[in-house]
């Protein structure tokens, strides 16, 4: 775990202590240990069925753990129903009450608490302004666009000033532009309210963009926890190396031939450089000779797939800086040398 990124004084907002949740034979969450700090933007990243949403639902109280315990700010909440937990959720489908207006939706939590109507209306007004939906109180959720519903769901959760806000793939249904805009806005709002955000997503780019820390989930277990840079630059397992960004995995005989080491290694395609065959390899680098098999033009950069003479292949990403990138396709079949820093090679566990 990444102890060194932990602010030393930070309070623990959510603690998982050997938490498991089984559905019949399926171990949706399997012996998870996890600390999330106060004020953090924490992402749970993983493919569908990896247990990230179940973890979120365990924090909210919609699911109860099969074993282990969960603490919220030091208080054991294992077994507590959702309505007794000081957390709020932004649902994937927004879950806005269709028979209520936007104002009634946002004010629901305050109404439950028995706050007077006039006071409620003031707070709803403020909250709607914060999510840039000022004056929309009287609309029905069906009259809103996807992005607007998203904001209502956010306002409805935040108005209760929860200690932790849970977001279950809230941007999944939005189109790319709106998604990117909402990513920024969520970040801004989090800074403003200072609440711990726990964000579930299967989109690695989204997790990298928004998070202070990320937990990568696979098959009910956490593969790695760390800052976006740690997760990307120093993946610990083959799963993380492959799920977050793209990696060349070099293993077994190939690793021995190319790098003279045993083990499985991950190398990011953009860390590898293409140089002429005869150029000498600088110190502390690895190199390999091969022929370019595939050239895929991607605009900002170009992906090359190189068949190595020693067997196997490496994927290389070069930025399209030079003018002659118009003719990248001509490189197909060319004999080249690949070099990369030894330190860019990550030894993977398992």
């Amino acid at each position: 775990m990444s102890e060194r990124n932990t602010p030393p004084s930070a309070e623990i907002a959510v603690r998982f202590n050997k938490v498991s949740r089984h559905f019949g034979d399926v171990r949706a969450v399997d012996q998870v240990d996890l600390d999330i700090y106060d004020g953090e933007f924490f992402s749970m990243l993983g493919p569908s069925g990896s247990g990230k949403t179940t973890c979120l639902r365990l924090i909210a109280g919609f699911e109860q753990s099969t074993s282990g315990s969960i603490q919220l700010y030091g208080q054991d909440v294992t077994g507590l129903p959702p309505f007794l937990r000081d957390v709020n959720t932004v649902f994937q489908d927004y879950a806005l009450f269709p028979h209520m207006t936007v104002g009634e939706n946002v004010g629901y939590g305050l109404m439950v608490k028995g706050i007077a109507k006039s006071d409620r209306e003031l707070q709803v007004k403020d909250m709607l302004e914060m999510v840039q939906l000022g004056g929309m109180e009287k609309r029905k959720p069906t009259q809103l666009s996807g992005g607007q519903r998203q904001r209502v769901a956010l306002a409805r959760a935040l108005i209760n000033r929860p200690r932790v806000l849970l977001l279950d793939e809230p941007l999944g249904a939005l189109d790319l532009k709106l998604r990117q805009q909402m990513q920024l806005e969520l970040k801004t709002i989090q800074h403003r309210v200072g609440i711990t955000f726990i964000f579930v997503t299967h989109d690695q780019e989204e997790a990298l963009t928004m998070s202070d820390r990320i937990a990568v989930f696979n098959q009910g277990k956490i593969e790695q926890i760390g800052t976006p840079a740690e997760i990307y630059e120093q993946p610990k397992t083959e799963f993380v190396a492959g799920f977050v960004g793209v990696s060349n995995i070099v293993r077994g005989d190939q690793a021995r031939r190319v790098m003279g080491k045993d083990g499985n290694f991950a190398i990011r395609p953009e860390k590898i450089h293409i140089v002429p065959v005869e150029s000498p390899a600088p110190e502390n680098t690895f190199c390999a000779i091969g022929a370019i098999r595939e050239v895929i033009y991607l605009g900002v950069n170009t992906r090359y797939v190189v068949d190595l003479d020693t067997g196997g292949e490496l994927s290389v990403l070069e930025q399209n800086l030079a003018q002659d990138s118009m003719n990248v396709a001509a490189a197909r079949g060319r004999k080249v040398q690949l070099i990369w820093q030894q330190s860019d090679c990550r030894l993977l566990q398992g």
Binding site: G61, P82, F83, T89, A95, Y108, A157
Partner: peptide, 8 residues
């Protein structure tokens, strides 16, 4: 779930 989440 949302209603319960909001304290009801």
């Amino acid at each position: 779930e949302a209603s319960s989440d909001l304290g009801a």
